[in-house]
Nucleic acid binder design. Sequence first.
DNA 1: CACTGCATGTAATTTGTTACATGATTCA
DNA 2: TGAATCATGTAACAAATTACATGCAGTG
Lengths: 192, 192
Amino acid sequence: VARSDQTQTAVLGALSIRPMTGYALREQILSTLGHFWSESFGQIYPALAQLERQDLVERKVSGSGSSNFAVTPAGLARLRELLAEPPQVAKPRNGVLLRLFFGRQLGPERCRELVRERREAAVRSLAELGRARAEVEADPSLGEQADYILLTVSAGEHSARSAIAWADEALATLDQLAADHRPADGTRGGTR
Amino acid sequence: VARSDQTQTAVLGALSIRPMTGYALREQILSTLGHFWSESFGQIYPALAQLERQDLVERKVSGSGSSNFAVTPAGLARLRELLAEPPQVAKPRNGVLLRLFFGRQLGPERCRELVRERREAAVRSLAELGRARAEVEADPSLGEQADYILLTVSAGEHSARSAIAWADEALATLDQLAADHRPADGTRGGTR
DNA sequence: CACTGCATGTAATTTGTTACATGATTCA
DNA sequence: TGAATCATGTAACAAATTACATGCAGTG
């Protein structure tokens, strides 16, 4: 039964916090979980259908078309089982670092752009995380769960801050490299 | 021609640093590039074959079976083209944070384990990066490329250090949560 | 001569993404 | 009534992993 365990975990987990529609599930995964997890649209409904067949989630059709999905007791047990399994590490694929690694072929200016963009992304991410933190802290319905969620928010914040610090360092290094590359660029030397 | 651009980039890039066999390429990607990039074994040879058909790499068969792959001038041009394309961001999939997010279902003790393992992984990673840094700094054949490679090493170091800092913080929080969870665990209170 | 490591490849399967198709509800 | 958003799903395609199959070279 080791098929799409990871997707099942995410879906069951999200529904364990509160029942919702598949659409809301997707929004949730895009916003809150999105900082460290992603599911593509085309996976959520098949996963829900599969979970329903296994009686791990229940669907309550409300009025027209739309349905509300909730975890069953068996689903909760399954979730605990899945969470207890060792997390399989995602193979890293960092396009920015790949490009920087071969930066000599790309030139210092382009590299600076990449790093600057990375920095801006981290700043945006930090702002989003701040908003997420505030939301979680303000939601009394989460109860004890809030502490755990804030742990993951904090992980994102640490990571974003470290990305910013690295970017600043890298930009300084790249400035140096660019300067070495064209030592006689202006009419005069000096720092101005 | 937007097929497996990413893999092509990694393969061409690695070969641009120095020509090598497919096997060595794999080792390279596992060790040096491995900190932020991964290619599965089954992708490298097909990618090489494809690149050869496009005259982007050249194969020099040496003695028995094994061949040495080198980038052609056209390949170098292609590499520059690929590097100039905007990096496509990898969808994040952090199994540890996913589990922590639903930590209430898992319990504080299990969460502590996860975080401790994460911390240890980061410590190991930091050590590996230190070794990689020393290797790069000691290799005079890399020339200007070394500066760019060190930039990526530095990114890894920043990220590992931030992971350690986060883990320490998280462990403290989890201790607190565990204590709250069973307020009357021993025969007496106090810190022992 | 058996074992380990180097080396090259293929096939089957699983996963994941993207685009498409459809329809209800809400609001201007 | 038209547009935007909510909502559910499918099919085709692209990518990635894994396991398998093969053989040479050096070494104890």
